[in-house]
Design a protein around this nucleic acid. Structure first.
Lengths: 343, 343
DNA sequence: CTGTTAGCGCATTCAG
DNA sequence: CTGAATGCGCTAACAG
């Protein structure tokens, strides 16, 4: 390995001078800069990141914490996409991203501990927001920089997070259904202790109320990506005396599962039942019928969270921020006008 | 930050002793070990990873290089799943994974350079295998440990990689179709300079030949995840005088796109056309009809590549290995018996 | 079984 | 504008 010593010796300057040209210190004459740079190139010099980190006490790296993956949640194309978003800014700023790899909550906790205590990263991004999360508590107590994608469970005004206005998105998408003449509108959501689900559901309910429609209890179900219990829940929904004519689904991936179940039952979308969901992952455009869904700009969610985090790691006095990424409804083919007696 | 010095002072031993109990050196009396550990706990001591890396010249971290993402390829659930696989072993071995974030080939190259020259990682895993890849060349010339998921373009016997037997998988899945009575079997693949595609396609062709069937040129098309040109290609396939009765598709995600197109054209799967593909991502189980596909064990692909890489970083003399992960066909609902005159 | 010494590669005072 | 000296936090001989 070629070090700054080598190139110092080769150019006849001191190591500090070399160090200064690396930092592009303005007090170094352009002559010596040129000379030193030439040598660096010739010798194939590259700074040792660890040595540098050790002395400057900063790593130019951020940790990205995925949710515990007992479930199949990670198969959701949401994740590669946020990663891309995060990556787009880390890359621009020459930061690295280190990914968590733990599966259980406990494993993840230890990992974060390692990242923080070992000063492996300057800050972390949480790709989830769970009720009463140990990791969040830890980060907060340590005063370690972090941002959350989604809505924090507590201390919401003191923790910077980037989120969508899921409540209004939920409201708006149900409103769309109502406008289309639907009155029997169901809601299928993911895990109900996720804020996304809760917010979107609340929006759905309020839209209904505002339209003078009833939000029947039996119209709201929650399912973990159609595993085991999930299918039955959906089936019972379809078996209802008053079967809904439209469904708001909290996630495109769930929509795809629901779509399959409807097809099996000989129910056509959107003729018999309309479907509207959230996220606008690539798949929702590919599948038939193409999904009417709200585009939450996943990429931007990631990018902004990284940007905010890095700003915070650089200037600790940076105040906590809430960043709301605008959504927009993408109209495709899974929603249609309600026509009486179609079913 | 509490350092090894602090706890040395507190316990009245030397820093080297503390260092030794961290390493659980057997030559330290259990008495002092106990004493030191107690102090570490009290003071909340955690080793500084950078300092340690600097002296031991190893990082216990591996780089994971994603393909350049001009296309939407990263939306493929394949990636989260390999990441999980890789993560499962890095985590067990207490390694970290740092993810590439470059979008273009050039950006990625610089990143890898940084990882290698900056000794940020001990080795890297390439999640792609492109013809004439700059990164691969670089790694090879530097003699830096790396493994490839997929089939290396060159020096195949000198670079450890983990792959499926895609040729035979392709053969077997087409054979399945043939057994079901199909004789007009088409092939839809992804980018044709990917080895996966090539291997699977070759298997498809050979299966046809062995069965005395013709592999018509117009039956083979390539499409980049159904973007722009892709749809037309598939359409032309369906417009053929002798429309195929079965299709081998090289990737589940493409299958989903094809499925949508067929549905639009009023063609039923599997009644009119059978569909068989590869990967067995979670979606293929959820979608209707559920996909008959070959399970390539993505998770294992990732895990084994990480395992092999780490072994190599630990013992540089470890020989290059080729690790073939077994595949198995998962029979679901997208393939059916061919019945004459069904179309 | 444990302490002393040295040094990993770099950035940063402080002089000059 | 540049060099000498010091130390970041830790491990690794080498002694004892």
């Amino acid at each position: 390995m070629v070090t700054i010593k080598d190139i110092a010796k080769a150019t006849g300057v001191s190591t500090s001078t070399v160090s200064r040209v690396i930092a592009d210190n303005p007090k170094i004459s352009s002559d010596t800069k040129k000379k030193v740079r030439k040598a660096m190139k010739e010798f194939g010099y590259h700074p040792n990141i660890n040595a540098r980190n050790l002395v400057v006490k900063s790593t130019k790296a951020i940790g990205v914490i995925m949710p515990s993956s007992a479930d199949k949640a990670l198969q959701n194309p949401f994740f590669p996409e946020v990663l891309r978003g995060i990556g787009s800014v880390t890359h621009k700023l020459q930061y690295s991203m280190v990914l968590s790899s733990g599966q259980t909550e406990d494993e993840i906790f230890r990992e974060v501990e390692r990242m923080v205590y070992g000063s492996q990263v300057d800050g972390v991004i949480l790709l989830y927001s769970r009720v009463n999360d140990r990791v969040t508590h830890f980060l907060r107590e340590e005063g370690f920089p972090y941002t959350i994608i989604g809505k924090p469970y507590e201390h919401i005004n003191e923790t910077t997070h980037v989120d969508n206005d899921n409540y209004n998105a939920g409201k708006e998408i149900t409103h769309l259904l109502i406008e289309k003449g639907h009155e029997q509108i169901a809601f299928i959501g993911g895990s109900k202790d996720l804020f996304v689900t809760m917010d979107r559901e609340k929006g759905y309910e309020d839209a209904l109320h505002e339209a003078g429609l009833e939000a029947k209890k039996e119209y709201k179900i929650h399912t973990e990506f159609l595993k085991s219990g999930g299918r039955e829940a959906v089936e019972s929904l379809l078996d209802l005396k008053h079967r809904p004519t439209a469904i708001v689904v909290s996630d495109d991936l769930i929509s795809i599962g629901v779509l399959g179940m409807l097809e099996e039952s000989g129910i056509n979308v959107p003729e018999d039942i309309s479907l509207a969901s959230f996220n606008n992952v690539y798949l929702s455009e590919i599948i038939r019928p193409a999904l009417t869904t709200v585009d939450i700009q996943i990429h931007e969610l990631g990018a902004q969270s990284a940007k905010a985090l890095i700003e915070k790691t650089i200037d600790k006095s940076e105040p906590a921020k809430r960043i709301i990424i605008p959504y927009k409804i993408v109209y495709r083919d899974s929603v249609s006008q309600f026509v009486k007696g179609a079913t």
